[in-house]
Each structure stands twice: as C-alpha cells, then as structure tokens.
C-alpha cells in the first residue's frame, strides 16, 4: 500500500513538517538576528527554517512536484494489526517505565505487551523471557559493562551483587 502517491497523502508529510517549522520559526523570531560582534543566535535558524518552510509550502500546494514515491517502503495489504498495536503500546510504555519502573519493569512490560499480547505466547514463557531480558540488561549492561540504564531500588540492588 503506497499511501504517499495520492494527492492528500502526498500533502500530509509536508503539511505536518510545515506546522513544526512554523512553531520553530515563532521561537526563532524571539532571538536576536545580530549581536555586538556579528550575526546573532537567531540568524541561522531563521534562514534555515524559512527556506525549509518555503519548500514544505511548495510541496503542500503542488504535491506533484515531489515526484512519485518510488522509495516509499511497502506495507503489505494485510498488516499484522494486533502485533503493530502491541508494538506501539510497548513503545509508549517504555517512556514512563524508564522513569518509574526501572529496567526490570520496562523489560517485563515490553515482554508482556509484545510477546504476550502481540504474539500470543503463553504467560509463563513471557514472564520468564521478560525476567531473562531484565537480568541480562541489569547484570551485563548495568553492572559488568557499567552502562547507565533506568534503575529502581531493585535494579540497583541486583547491580550491587555483581559489581
């Protein structure tokens, strides 16, 4: 399914980019364009954002100028909706999880959402898999390699055992 080929589909991306750029332009316009020693901090952002917004507006008004979507990545006609939704849920989950539930919570949550709900694997296997992922992350990356990972008291306690 190549959604970018249609005129409306072709307008969506430049339209959204244009909105973001206009927000950026609003922020950039508050900065000084010139300072005591030369160009100010606002000059370059204003030039770049204005020029890019011009291109986005052009593509919004005349979508055929963008040319055909020869490189648009194909999406199969019958997507795996359940798994796709589970993946989105897991992505949305790991943001608060990294703040509040630590790596162990994030790993368990990702396993439950993606492997359990998305791929319909059995509960025991999912929990075991989540725990193995959590252990590898906390012990190998957190404790042995010294990589900074999201931590709760539980993660920190496990790490201390292996340092």
């Amino acid at each position: 399914m190549n959604r970018g080929m249609g005129t409306n589909g072709g307008r969506l991306a430049p339209g959204l980019v244009l909105i973001l750029l206009l927000l950026g332009l609003w922020q950039a316009s508050r900065l000084e364009l010139s300072g005591f020693t030369g160009p100010g901090p606002g000059l370059f952002p204003v030039i770049v954002i204005t020029a890019t917004a011009g291109i986005a507006a052009l593509l919004l008004l005349l979508p055929h100028l963008a040319g055909p979507d020869t490189s648009a990545e194909e999406e199969n006609d019958e997507p795996d909706r359940r798994n796709f939704v589970a993946c989105i849920a897991a992505l949305l989950f790991i943001v608060p999880a990294s703040a509040w539930f630590g790596f162990t919570g994030a790993a368990l949550g990702a396993a439950v959402l993606m492997t359990g709900l998305g791929e319909r694997r059995g509960a025991a296997g999912v929990v075991l898999f989540g725990l193995v992922c959590a252990a590898v992350g906390v012990i190998l990356f957190g404790a042995l390699l010294g990589v900074d990972i999201p931590r709760t008291e539980l993660d920190a306690a496990i790490q201390r055992q292996f340092r």
Binding site: C87, A90, A106, A107, A111, G130, G137, F141, I149
Partner: peptide, 11 residues
C-alpha cells in the same frame, strides 16, 4: 527478537 531490539534501543 522484537522486545530484545526494543530493550537494546532503550539501553
């Protein structure tokens, strides 16, 4: 594989 990749991205 997918959760492993997601967790690698998170780390």
């Amino acid at each position: 594989l997918s959760p492993i990749i997601l967790l690698l991205c998170l780390i």
